[in-house]
């Protein structure tokens, strides 16, 4: 309950990203430009005009925080000597500033690795153990809800895992599963740089499996027997995850509040459901075969708990 309360408090508080940016960023100036005299405000106190016609100095860019008006005028010590006619005029020195960009949307490109833990005993026909390593990548985007800490969005991920094993010592089996996952994602910015998120989605899961059996050698050392078979299926897939994303906050980036890109990593865990796969591979046969039928080995439920670790680049 306390964690829920904390989440709610965090979700309705103003976004810290804006505040920090405003506090530390200089006054917004989109880019450097020479300031016209009438607009350069506040103008320093006018220096006493020399009695004689003296060359008018070039207007200098003024720092954005206006200097104190009490600052003595540049020309207080007297009119500067006129530059030699042959010397070029040095370019004005400038200090770049960036506008603060409030984060209204985010777009992530991510890569991830993880492990699925598949509890169905039939999975052991495809693997020595219950875990299956998977890898993938995807893209996702979200936008801020109101002015709070909550972002809502979605994305798509492609991930793949494969494994191989065998049934007794009779047959070798291998399987490859390719998921195309579309999901909705809700993120809460706990502090800038730390998101807590949940996501849920679904999509097709493309499973392909193959089998191989071995024959034997006859008395003349001729090899015969054995076979191979192949199967492809599209399974329904649903996926729910929750996790934590850590990324570089704006204040750590060179352009600070105006930064458009950051990067981070995320950890997530959840459950992936796939419809059962009826294992009935088709025997590989030569051309014009005798009508061939295969038996169903049974069902395997490639579903279970999974965790993943990912890296992402975020545009915002």
């Amino acid at each position: 309950m306390s964690s829920l309360t904390l989440a709610l408090v965090l979700s309705f508080a103003p976004a810290p990203a804006d505040r920090s940016g405003a506090a530390e960023a200089p006054t917004a100036v989109e880019a450097w430009s020479p300031a016209p005299a009438e607009s350069a405000a506040p103008a320093p106190a006018p220096a006493p005009a020399p009695a004689a016609a003296a060359p008018t100095p070039m207007p200098l860019p003024m720092p954005v925080p206006a200097p104190a008006p009490e600052q003595p005028p540049v020309a207080a010590a007297g009119p500067p000597p006129p530059p030699p006619a042959s010397a070029p005029i040095p370019p004005p020195s400038r200090k770049r500033t960036w506008p603060d960009r409030p984060i209204r949307w985010r777009l992530d490109i991510a890569g991830e690795i993880g492990t699925s833990v598949i509890r169905d005993p039939a999975w052991r026909a495809f693997d020595d153990n219950r875990s299956a390593f998977n890898a993938g990548g995807g893209v996702r985007g979200d936008f801020r809800l109101g002015k709070g800490r909550v972002f809502l969005g979605g994305g798509a991920t492609f991930r793949r895992f494969g494994s191989y094993g065998g049934i007794y010592d009779a047959i070798d089996m291998d399987i490859t599963v390719r998921d195309v996952l579309a999901f909705l994602r809700l993120s809460i910015v706990a502090v800038e740089g730390v998101d807590v998120f949940v996501q849920a989605g679904g999509g097709p899961s493309f499973a392909s499996l193959s089998t191989h059996t071995y024959g034997s050698y006859d008395a003349y050392d001729a090899y015969y027997g054995g076979s191979s078979a192949y199967q492809r299926n599209v399974l329904g897939m649903g996926d729910g995850q929750a996790g934590l994303a850590l990324y570089l906050p704006k204040k750590w980036l060179p352009r600070r509040g105006a930064s458009r890109a950051t990067a981070g990593l995320e950890f997530a865990a959840g459950y992936t459901f796939r419809s059962k796969l009826a294992v009935r591979p088709a025997l590989n046969v030569d051309e014009d075969p005798i009508p061939t039928h295969t038996s169903e080995f049974g069902d395997v439920a490639v579903r279970g708990f999974q965790w993943r670790f990912g890296l992402f680049v975020r545009f915002q």
């Binding site: 039939a122 047959i171 078979a229 025997l283 005798i290 009508p291 295969t294 038996s295 069902d299």
Partner: peptide, 12 residues
């Protein structure tokens, strides 16, 4: 007719 895999039928 050719039949294959019947010795492993239902093994999963």
């Amino acid at each position: 007719h050719v039949h294959w895999g019947f010795l492993l039928q239902g093994v999963l």
